[in-house]
Simulated assay, not measured.
Amino acid sequence: MTDPDNPQGTPRICPIDPTTQALAVRGLTKSYGDAIVVDNINLDIPKGAIYGIVGPNGAGKTTMLSMATGLLRPNRGSAWISGFNVWEEPNHAKKEMGLLADGLPIFDRLTGKELLVYVGAIRGLDEQLVDQRSNELLNALGLEDAAGKRIVDYSAGMTKKILLAQALIHNPKVLILDEPLEAVDPVSGRLIQQILRNFAQAGGTVVLSSHVMELVEGLCDHVAIINKGVVEVAGHVDDVRQGSSLTDVFVDVVGGGALQEGSLSWLGLAEDQG
């Protein structure tokens, strides 16, 4: 848990060496004009964890992860992946991570197999190894029949799965996923969760953002709740929920969620169309 006597807005010296963590950020801040989106965030994600990042819409989750992975430059602060400073050692940091970022452009005129071959080549993998891993990923994710189909013709769920495959193909140490199960059917969702568990059990680290509390509670062993650009609470899932459900803790931390008495009282009432 975060120290309640030391709010995120107060600069402090973090006792954990960020280079020992799978992913760490220190003082990460992003603002647009007078609007502060991410406010001096400090966070440590240990190696081997399945770490959930949750928060309401507009809380700063995606912005924080974008800065932590080198997609967006912060106003101030630093980030490390597998001990490498993202902005000082970008090539080393990016080699260590696999990324599924929500909303980025996709090479959707390629087929699913072509995308994996292309990404594998960029990652410097041997052609034969890329072919083997591509076929295994396509089969594991139920995309073998769509391997020769252009991604532009994929459903939203299929697109999410091929993006997960391209994030995994080089066997990264840290897998960072923004809403990985959005639009994915329950069968594929369960399969993806098993892949992520196996990845973590083998020594990898999974960092995922999600709005689905049940997913985070059932899959993740650590969680951070971000609200209004700060980390409100972070730690092992059991320590965060303290016997309650993660949804209840989330609502307590973030606030809101209750309909005001009398609000929308007109719904369902028959109206005189006179």
Rank of each mutant, 00 (worst) to 15 (best):
L125K: 10
G142E: 08
D145F: 01
L141N: 00
S134P: 06
L143P: 00
D126L: 15
A121S: 13
L137W: 06
A147W: 07
A146Q: 09
G142R: 11
D145E: 04
D126A: 15
L125S: 08
D145H: 03
A121N: 14
L116I: 05
L141G: 02
V117N: 11
Q132V: 09
N139Y: 12
L129H: 07
L141I: 03
A146N: 06
E144N: 11
G142T: 09
R133H: 01
V117Y: 09
A121G: 15
E144H: 14
D145T: 02
G142A: 09
D145P: 00
L116S: 04
V117H: 14
R133L: 03
D131F: 04
G120D: 10
V130Y: 01
S134V: 11
L116N: 03
A147H: 03
A147E: 08
G124E: 02
D126V: 14
R133C: 03
G124S: 09
V117R: 13
D131K: 12
Q132W: 09
Y118S: 02
L138H: 02
V119W: 13
L141M: 02
E114S: 10
L143A: 11
E127A: 10
A121P: 08
L141E: 01
G120Y: 10
L137A: 08
L137C: 03
L138R: 04
L138T: 01
L116Y: 04
L141S: 00
E114R: 13
L116K: 08
E136F: 02
G142M: 09
V119G: 08
R123T: 08
D131E: 14
V130M: 04
L116H: 05
E114K: 13
A147D: 03
A121W: 13
L125Y: 12
V130E: 06
G124N: 08
G142H: 10
V117A: 13
G142K: 10
V130I: 15
L125T: 09
A147V: 04
G124Q: 10
L129W: 03
A121E: 15
E136I: 05
D131W: 05
E144G: 00
G120L: 09
R133F: 04
E136Q: 12
E114M: 11
D126H: 12
A147Y: 08
L141K: 02
A147T: 06
D126M: 05
S134K: 05
D131A: 15
V119T: 13
L115F: 12
G124T: 06
V130G: 01
D131H: 13
A140Y: 05
I122L: 15
V130W: 02
L137S: 01
E144P: 01
D145G: 02
D126N: 12
V130N: 06
L129D: 06
L141P: 00
L129N: 03
R133P: 00
N139G: 05
